[in-house]
Every structure is written in C-alpha cells, then in structure tokens.
C-alpha cells in the first residue's frame, strides 16, 4: 500500500496451475476453468525472455489493453465476441466468457470436407450430400464475409485472422449457428483501406493453406464482404496490391 510500487500479484498464476491448459502459444497460454461459478477461458500473456524487461512489460500490457478494447468495440456494434469478466494487468491475464457449444471454423470446415470426400458407396445419395455440404460451407463463407465487413466498418483491424480465431456457436434451440470472433491480441483501430486489405490478405493466406481446394469458397467470402461493407471497393483494391507485392517478394525469394 501507500506509495510503494504496486506488487505483482501471484494469486492468478497460482490459480492457473490448477486450471486446464487448452493451448500453449508463443505469446500466450489459454486455460479453461470456472470463475465466479461460470465456465471461463483465461488468456495469460507471458514475457519474451529476449526482450528488455521494461519494454516487454509495456508491450504485453498494451496487447492486453488492445484486446479488451477491441472486444468491447465489436460487441457495441453487435459483432459477437466473448464477454470480458476480469483483467489482471499485473499478470497479464484476461478472463473471458467461454463460448459453449462451439467449434472453430477451422475444425468445422475440415470435418465437412472430410466427410464429403470419404464417401464411395451409394453414389447418388452421396452426390446429394456433397451438394448440401457445399451449400452449407458457402453459407458459412458468406457469414464470415459479413461479420468481417461489419468489423472493418467499425475500423477494427483484427491483426490475426485465421479460421481458428472464429468460433461457430450452435444456438440452443438448434436454429442455425452464429460466428464469434476471438483472439484480438494483435488488433488495433484504423480506418485505412490498406490495413483492412492486409487483414484480409492474412486471412486469405491462412485460409487457403489450412483448407485445400477452397479458392472458390474464399471468393464467395470476399463477395459477401464486398456486398456487406460500405467501403469495400478501396479495401479490395488494396488486397489486390498486397497480393501482388506478396507474389513479387516470393519470386525474389
């Protein structure tokens, strides 16, 4: 207390030792636990040893702040993102609502593709099923395009768009699913079409490398983005430029 420097609290890291580790990343660990009686996800950012201590503290804090600010900005605009329950800026932990009955868009696409390709018998019925699955994926791609358009119209740049950072949540009465965006650790606010174009480029790279043979599907996503966003033409133009730069860079090696 008094005028001493605030202590670093050890209580949260200690608590997390008893929680279930969901993911060990390069910059953060994700845990699943109960908090105030509710199913909760905890995201703990940790230090990079090679960085200067004070600088590292500052960067890690900034990421934590950016993440919770972007979540609130999205939610205000009606874009689903997990609710924030508690933030500990001393141990860089964010306590988030666990999105129940959900799977990542990545897993959903992968399992749909797999079940479509491993069918050999009963060709007619399988063709029907394949068609249904194709339509379902197209609908999902459209949903993703819409939500990203809405997010960019709010000038939120996600910074790390992948199909793992989108959750598909089944509604309780089984009336379809909605998308929930997660992991805003690299997000920031910008109105520049260039920044939005790069955001989409990052997704395109991740999407096409994670899900083979989805070029047409990704085009559907972009088409829906374009139809939903007020400022899409400048963004898509930038996306083209960024792609070209990317290709040139890879030709040079």
């Amino acid at each position: 207390g008094g005028n001493m420097a605030p202590e670093k609290s050890a209580t949260v890291p200690q608590f997390l030792r008893g929680a279930e580790l969901v993911k060990q990343g390069a910059e953060a660990r994700v845990y699943r636990t109960q908090f105030l009686g509710r199913p909760t996800i905890v995201k703990e950012r940790f230090s990079k040893r090679y960085r200067h201590v004070a600088l590292d503290e500052k960067l890690t804090r900034r990421r934590t702040v950016q993440e919770v600010r972007s979540i609130l900005r999205c939610r205000r605009a009606g874009i689903p993102a997990p609710a924030v329950y508690f933030v500990d800026y001393t141990s860089h932990c964010i306590f988030l609502e666990e999105i129940l009955r959900s799977s990542t868009v990545r897993d959903h696409i992968a399992s749909t593709q797999q079940s479509a390709s491993c069918t050999v018998q009963e060709l007619d019925r399988d063709q029907d099923r394949e068609l249904v699955q194709e339509q379902e994926l197209e609908q999902l791609a459209q949903q993703v395009g819409q939500i990203l358009a809405k997010m960019h119209d709010e000038d939120v740049i996600h910074g790390d768009l992948t199909t793992s950072n989108m959750l598909l949540r089944r509604s309780p009465e089984d009336r379809g699913s909605d998308l929930v965006l997660i992991d805003f650790g690299l997000s920031y606010i910008s109105a520049l079409p260039e920044d939005k174009g790069v955001d989409l480029y990052v997704l395109e790279k991740a999407f096409l490398s994670t899900h083979p043979h989805t070029e047409a599907l990704f085009q559907k996503l972009l088409k829906s983005y374009s139809a939903s966003s007020k400022k899409s033409s400048a963004v898509l133009k930038k996306l083209d430029e960024v792609r070209l730069r990317g290709r040139k860079r890879s030709m040079v090696g």
């Binding site: 919770v68 205000r76 605009a77």
Partner: peptide
C-alpha cells in the same frame, strides 16, 4: 447499451464488460 449490442449477448454481458475494463477506456 444500444439495442444492437443485445443482439449478440445479454444486457448482463454488456454491463459486466464495461465494469471489467473501465480503467482502460
């Protein structure tokens, strides 16, 4: 809390989010 926010979550979520992060807003 605008109506659109309650389309993607409850009023309780909206309230709790603001309480949790008011120090950095």
């Amino acid at each position: 809390v605008a109506p659109q926010e309650e389309t993607c979550g409850t009023l309780l979520d909206a309230v709790v989010c603001r309480m949790a992060i008011k120090d950095v807003m």
